[in-house]
Design a protein around this nucleic acid. Structure first.
Lengths: 230, 230
DNA sequence: GATGCGTATACTGTATGCAGCATGCAGTTG
DNA sequence: CAACTGCATGCTGCATACAGTATACGCATC
């Protein structure tokens, strides 16, 4: 993809021009189905009817099936032979386990990020953080949620470890739905905000150990925030 | 699936009867392609021709494509719009990063396993270990390699954390090819064996911290074993 | 001779058709 | 009346056909 950027100097190339984003249908369908699961349109345990869902999305069964295979690998969907795709149901233990793994991954990412990240990259995260604070101020839960997810992703990117990032993303996407319905109560939300405040500060001072500790705590509290919804 | 096991006692049901294992084609194709990548039949950077590979495997393009989507999610294959599937090429840094993550995951698994695993389960791992020692004695590299992989997987299973296991499996499968071509030299192989000896011992004495340390070291040494092949 | 353009070919992306299996219902038999 | 068997229906699994796009080659032009 990045192999043919070397162009003869004589050719006029608009510097700011972005390559046209062409997403294949199955790729588009993957995100659409993910969203449907997060929003609760596709409830856990639901059997996915390919013909039906295909019509709803205005897509034939082929790309839809390809998308389902992809999501199966991500762990969001379970494939049962001759019975098709079923939206995965997670037990309380499953969720606890996933959070434990996330905790370990994020703690590792914390140390890496403090060591490796550029000042500019950290400043970017700060900007997202500030926007999130704004959204919190007006109690815009949906937008807050999105920015929150973005911060965690950006945070992982700072580590510069692609494998770490993909492992994190995979688990994160499985938990999105559950995290979304958590954080309902004002106090808990406030506590989460306070933790984020610590996180960004330790990141800026590049205090990896402290950051790792806060991140671990944050994950532990996330468990407390979501456990009763299970 | 497990909901209708309650049968009237009068009906003859063969107790020992196993349910028939039915693997779908795409599932079968997934493992076949994985193997082809590990064995080097599909070299990194290769563009996969769907029609061609389909004929080779005796399968139409549909299940093949579904398999490719699955493998893409695992990170073994990259999908480029309108150009299809390309076997992923890993840089030295990619490999190093993956090993770092594996190290973190296995260290965590080590602590969990020592705490959670049943004696019987640990005994099972011991049996695999002993078989591996046998294979090492006669320098059966392929079989050793398979048993080695099996041990690492079993080890992760002991932790009882499914999310941890799946994250590990995903990265492990990406590294299989590279690990397979490593371990060529006798001394390095011997060293790896010695580490495994420590690992099984600490597991049996349930010394989680020591086990975590050895596992981390093992991963560090794995890096040294494979780095020159990159 | 080199460069640029146009066309042909081949491969990917998507839709659709067909076969096999699961499931629910009705008929039948004890 | 209950339970089991046979059948109809609908859905998944796979194959194939068609459309759109990348790529390579040849031709024309400078």
């Amino acid at each position: 993809m990045t192999m043919e950027t070397a162009q003869p100097a004589s050719i006029a190339v608009a510097e700011g021009a972005q390559p046209i984003f062409r997403r294949s249908l199955h790729d588009e369908v993957v995100t659409r189905i993910r969203d449907m699961i997060i929003e609760g349109v596709l409830a856990p345990g639901t059997r996915v009817n390919e013909t039906h869902l295909g019509q709803t999305l205005g897509v034939s069964r082929t790309p839809l099936r390809e998308a389902l295979k992809f999501l199966a690998s991500e762990g969001l969907i379970e494939l049962v032979t001759a019975r098709g795709a079923i939206v995965k149901k997670f037990t309380a233990k499953d969720v606890r386990d996933m959070l434990d793994v996330l905790s370990v991954l994020e703690a590792f990412a914390a140390r890496l990020a403090c060591r490796e990240a550029s000042d500019a990259a950290i400043a970017d995260v700060r900007r997202i953080h500030d926007r999130m604070v704004d959204r919190y101020a007006v109690r815009d839960r949906l937008e807050y949620f999105k920015l929150n997810q973005q911060i965690h992703s950006a945070f992982l990117q700072l580590s510069g470890n692609a494998a770490l990032e993909s492992a994190h993303t995979s688990i994160q996407s499985r938990l999105k739905r559950i995290r979304y319905i958590g954080n309902q109560e004002p106090q808990k939300w406030a506590a989460a905000m306070a933790e984020h405040e610590d996180m960004i500060r330790f990141l800026e001072t590049r205090d990896g150990e402290s950051l790792a500790r806060v991140v671990t705590q944050h994950m532990e509290h996330t468990w407390e925030r979501v456990r009763q919804t299970l």
